[in-house]
């Protein structure tokens, strides 16, 4: 499973990806808008895009665009990007399972939760 991770998440994530998951970190040269990440992910066959902070998924039109493109949106709630990285790695197995049943997923400290549409 390939996941595109936003630039705000630490660069070391790509090297620390657990087995069965490939992380690619967004590069600024590819564009800056939120929708640019979604279009790129869909074009390059990513399963979803990972953002920091649940409010990222509240950008108007994001979820609708993700639905149209058929990609998942994942947000990580954390006190800082390094904690977000730890949570993403720790919950990667749960995340894989959750993505089987939901397109919008929130990673918290102790659980991985579906987000409503």
């Amino acid at each position: 499973m390939k996941l595109l991770i936003d630039t705000v998440l630490p660069a070391t994530l790509t090297a620390d990806a657990p087995a069965g998951i490939d992380f690619e970190r967004w590069k600024k040269s590819d564009g800056q808008n939120d929708s640019d990440l979604l279009y790129y992910a869909a074009k390059e066959g990513f399963r979803g895009v990972v953002f920091l902070d649940r409010i990222s998924l509240e950008q108007p039109g994001m979820r609708q665009l993700a639905k149209e493109l058929g990609i998942a949106l994942i947000a990580i709630d954390a006190s800082d990007p390094i904690q977000a990285r730890e949570r993403l790695i720790r919950h990667s197995a749960r995340l894989r399972r959750k993505l089987g049943e939901s397109q919008f997923v929130l990673i918290l400290g102790s659980e991985v939760r579906s987000m409503g549409e």
């Binding site: 936003d6 630039t7 705000v8 600024k28 800056q32 808008n33 929708s35 920091l52 990007p81």
Partner: peptide, 28 residues
């Protein structure tokens, strides 16, 4: 700041790294 970039959050120029994330890491 631009409404289409990182849900409109203030961010480091020409990047997608938010000012908030930098401050959080600075605290850490």
């Amino acid at each position: 700041l631009h409404p289409a970039i990182i849900h409109g959050a203030p961010h480091l120029k020409d990047s997608r790294i938010t000012a908030r994330a930098l401050a959080q890491l600075h605290i850490r």
